[in-house]
Amino acid sequence: MAEKNATTAEIAELQAEVERLTKALEEARTAIAEDTGAEVHGAREAAEEIGERFQEGLSDLQKQIGENPVPSALIAFGIGFLLGRVFTR
């Protein structure tokens, strides 16, 4: 009978340990999910900022081309010519 009580006590201890580990695992999962969410949010904001800067730069370039079409065309021709020379060799 004493052996049965010892086994029951051991089982109860193991069940309590499993419950503690399960709770710790859930807390760790929650913490990781929160950290990952913050990182994703930060990366999204950085990507949006880069996109906005790119759009502003493109807008400025279009404005410059509109204000100076002949020099812009000559510059584009020169760049194209140089790239053609580089890639044909």
Score class of each variant (00 low, 15 high):
G84N: 07
A24W: 05
E10Q: 10
V86F: 14
F81C: 05
R29F: 06
T88D: 11
L25F: 09
I65C: 08
A2R: 05
L61C: 07
E10I: 02
D60A: 15
E56D: 14
G80Q: 09
E26Y: 05
L25G: 09
R85T: 13
V18F: 10
Q62S: 12
L61N: 10
G80N: 13
E19A: 15
I50R: 15
E67C: 03
A16K: 12
R85H: 09
A12W: 01
R20F: 04
K63I: 02
F87Y: 11
F54P: 00
A16H: 03
Q55D: 13
V40R: 13
E13P: 00
A28Y: 09
A38L: 12
E67H: 04
R44H: 08
G42F: 04
G57F: 06
L61H: 08
L83V: 12
K63H: 10
I75H: 06
E17H: 09
E56Y: 05
K63A: 12
R29P: 00
I79D: 01
T88Y: 04
L82K: 01
E45G: 01
E3S: 04
G66T: 07
E45S: 05
A12S: 10
A12E: 12
R20Y: 07
E56S: 15
G57M: 13
A16F: 03
G80C: 09
K4H: 06
L82A: 14
M1P: 09
I11N: 09
L25M: 11
K4T: 07
P69N: 06
I11F: 06
A24G: 07
T22N: 15
S72A: 15
I32V: 14
E19R: 12
R85Q: 14
A46L: 04
I32G: 02
G37C: 01
T22L: 13
K63E: 11
I75D: 11
L82N: 00
T22Y: 06
N5K: 08
E10G: 05
